[in-house]
């Protein structure tokens, strides 16, 4: 079992569980966590026993955002750009063929929302607070949020959140389609695990092609997307 500083990685049968583990910093996403994520996601993808992934946060928050003391300090923009693609954990997450569940609670702010949006299913505890404060800090989301958020909630609601930085609670997040389920805090982990277990029982090729068809297909003209679906189904049946 790989050991990480900022994440707890464990396995429960076929379910891999990544728990953000900087509770003293409300699980703020930092450079060490980025590197730990890269390693953990590689383990998830490579390990043939792992059939689904659950992502949660330890302590009072799922993730209160990026650790702003660490990011944006690259010596130059060219180096920042190079590093973004050399350490592309978000692309790595999107390329995971195994189904991923995020079970969030407490504060789910900035990068926290973005990490959840890179997962296939999102559930939240009733008291969860969401916000994307980047624009009010002089930046924009950097973990895909400007792309994944409007693809989940639509352009205008996405811009409403991004341009005002306003907070929303779990019920509003549910009605905006940022989430698909809200549960009481005390059963969040249990619900997350049971969802991940359910997904682990799926034929892995079927779930991988469903993910791929939906993610890629929604960006294609319908005729091409239908072709993608036909070919994926035919390949899975072969």
């Amino acid at each position: 079992m790989p050991g990480f500083t900022t994440l707890k990685y464990s396995k429960d049968g076929p379910v891999a569980h990544i728990s953000l583990n900087r509770p003293q910093a409300l699980n703020a996403y930092n450079i060490q966590m980025r590197d730990d994520f890269a390693g953990a996601l590689e383990a998830v993808q490579e390990d043939p026993d792992v059939r689904s992934l659950l992502i949660t946060g330890r302590g009072r928050a799922f993730c209160a955002g990026a650790d702003l003391t660490e990011f944006g300090r690259a010596p130059s923009q060219t180096i920042a750009r190079q590093v973004r693609w050399e350490r592309d954990v978000w692309g790595q997450m999107l390329r995971l063929t195994k189904p991923v569940v995020a079970a969030v609670h407490g504060y789910c702010i900035g990068s926290g929302v973005e990490i959840a949006l890179l997962c296939d299913l999102r559930i939240a505890a009733e008291e969860t607070i969401f916000a994307l404060p980047e624009v009010h800090l002089g930046m924009i989301p950097a973990a895909g949020g400007t792309q994944t958020l409007p693809r989940s909630v639509g352009r205008s609601p996405a811009l409403h959140l991004l341009l005002t930085g306003r907070r929303l609670d779990a019920m509003e997040a549910l009605s905006l389609r940022l989430l698909t389920r809200v549960v009481p805090q005390d059963v969040l982990l249990e619900e997350g695990l049971s969802l991940a277990r359910q997904l682990a029982e799926l034929d892995s090729e079927f779930s991988a092609s469903a993910k791929d068809c939906i993610r890629r297909g929604t960006d294609l003209p319908l005729a091409q997307a239908l072709d993608l679906e036909s070919r994926s189904a035919a390949r899975a049946l072969a």
């Binding site: 690259a74 930046m139 924009i140």
Partner: peptide, 10 residues
Amino acid sequence: LEADLNILLH
């Protein structure tokens, strides 16, 4: 696009 705009913001 997002990444490039972000790096411009730097």
